[in-house]
């Protein structure tokens, strides 16, 4: 996949749908393609957050620690973005993400990601929407479990 193609793929992220192609290319250029096997941990609770992840292909599951147990709170599939929340909050990771089957992701550089968001009003609004949605879905999912 060359850079143009990678940039086009990134356009699938709702946050960045209105970003100029050259910005998407920069984001893609500053990213690494990583492969994970089934069951491999992408990151765990408390890890330092320096990047966001975008799923090119495959699936992953998100767990949080709740009452000393792993509780599954989300299921991620192709073209899903994850790990960006900790970037905004500059906290450590608040969840564990584990690959389900073969997983191919783009690891987006954290500071580059933030730059794209902060310099583009559309993206900034998108962030609020996404975060609110996530908050709602996580709360609901927790409510259902307990």
């Amino acid at each position: 996949m060359d850079l143009e193609e990678a940039a086009r793929t990134l356009k699938n992220i709702p946050l960045f749908s209105k970003l100029e192609p050259s910005k998407l290319k920069l984001l893609a250029f500053a990213s690494d393609q990583l492969i994970f096997d089934d069951g491999e941990v992408i990151f765990s609770t408390g890890d330092r957050a320096d990047s966001a992840y975008f799923i090119e292909s495959g699936e992953a599951e998100v767990f949080v620690d709740f009452d000393d147990k792993h509780v599954k709170v989300n299921h991620l599939g192709p073209h899903d973005l994850f790990g960006e929340m900790a970037l905004f909050l500059s906290t450590g990771r608040s969840a564990i993400v584990i690959a389900k089957g073969d997983l191919k992701v783009m690891k987006l550089d954290g500071s580059m990601f933030l730059k794209m968001v902060t310099e583009n009003p559309d993206a900034a609004l998108g962030v609020m929407t996404v975060l609110s949605e996530k908050l709602v879905s996580t709360s609901q999912s927790l409510a259902n479990k307990s």
Binding site: M1, D2, L3, A6, A28, F29, D32, Q33
Partner: peptide, 8 residues
């Protein structure tokens, strides 16, 4: 392979 800018 990593930079995806040619010579690949």
């Amino acid at each position: 392979d990593r930079h995806r800018l040619g010579l690949a």
